[in-house]
């Protein structure tokens, strides 16, 4: 007896896999529909609802939202007081991103190109560990560290370097009775909290640069500095951009750190929180929330034009 060319289907599972094999499109549709629905309806849908809200306005007497299309709410963004908030937030986000990039690069470079085995594990642990503990606890801890009687002030006094802190606190725009009530303190805490989000994508980008590429550069006569500028940096740039998207947009949206550390001046996130909660001005809150989106779009298109994604 010869064996049959086609084996009989053993139950439902065999028939199902058979159907999927014959019609691979069906399987794709089944697999991709739920996440696509999530992305389309829940994620982008709520964003669209937000956009819609920003085109409504609030009745100044009754405080009720008028569901009529208007640009009045956007015009409110350009009031001096609101413009101040936007500019302050952008300046802070840029400073935090820049500081994170400068701090993260050597760390990411070392981890990607030199660390091996146990050192690499230590690196991952060191970068990720702060992410596992509560954000609020870390921010409050920093408030204590930066306070006048805090460990930083104590150490500065003990080493006679208190003049550095006093110097920073006397810079116009950074004034405060201590670092924990100065905008500089807000900046420090932002940099600390968001640093891992800059290190990880940078490290991933640097890790993908093969050694032979650096050798090829040296082989063709490039010094280490030239190799860094013309090969390593351009290849790491997509990672730097990815990291800066994180640090930039997280700073734009955060509303807790400026409440706890700093001089209580308002940032976009905090303003949205207050407008939404206590003031009940949802349209203006929505309009404020659109600002970071626009900033990110402008930033990304500038980065693209500068060739930041050429290596992708």
């Amino acid at each position: 007896m010869t064996a049959p060319a086609i084996l009989p289907a053993r139950g439902l599972a065999d028939r199902l896999t058979g159907t999927f094999w014959r019609r691979p499109g069906l399987l794709l549709v089944l697999l991709i529909t739920p996440p696509l629905l999530w992305l389309g309806v829940v994620y982008l849908g709520s964003l669209a609802a937000l956009l819609l809200q920003s085109f409504y306005s609030i009745d100044e007497f009754s405080g009720v939202v008028k569901e009529e299309f208007t640009l009045k709410t956007y015009a409110e963004l350009f009031r001096a007081q609101n413009l101040d908030i936007i500019i302050r937030t952008i300046v802070m986000a840029m400073a935090v991103t820049l500081a994170c990039a400068v701090l993260a690069f050597p760390i990411a470079y070392y981890a990607a190109r030199h660390a091996k085995g146990a050192w690499k594990a230590a690196f991952y642990l060191g970068v990720m560990l702060p992410l596992w503990s509560s954000y609020l606890v870390k921010v409050y801890a920093w408030k204590l560290i930066l306070a006048k009687e805090g460990i930083l002030g104590w150490a500065a006094e003990g080493t006679g370097t208190g003049f550095i802190i006093d110097g920073i606190l006397s810079i116009p725009g950074l004034e405060g009775s201590s670092l924990s009530t100065s905008p500089f303190g807000t900046f420090l805490v932002f940099v600390y909290i968001w640093l891992p989000y800059m290190i990880l994508p940078m490290q991933a980008a640097l890790e993908r640069v093969p050694n032979s590429m650096l050798e090829a550069s040296a082989d063709l006569g490039a010094t280490r500095g030239q190799t860094f500028r013309t090969v390593i940096l351009p290849l790491a740039l997509p990672g730097v951009i990815a990291g800066s998207i994180f640090t930039f947009s997280l700073t734009l949206g955060d509303y807790i750190i400026p409440q706890i550390v700093g001089d209580s001046s308002r940032f976009i996130g905090l303003t949205v929180y207050q407008l939404q909660g206590t003031a009940g001005n949802t349209p203006l809150a929505a309009a404020f929330a659109v600002v970071p989106i626009l900033i990110m779009l402008v930033y990304l298109s500038l980065a693209k034009r500068a060739g930041a994604f050429n290596a992708l």
């Binding site: 032979s212 050798e215 090829a216 550069s217 082989d219 290849l235 060739g307 050429n310 290596a311």
Partner: peptide, 20 residues
């Protein structure tokens, strides 16, 4: 003598062309 000062050039196994 470091590589960049040698009058010698290499064709690498994986070519090592710069992707950007």
């Amino acid at each position: 003598t470091p590589p960049h000062l040698r009058n010698v050039n290499t064709v690498f196994q994986d070519y090592a062309l710069f992707p950007h």
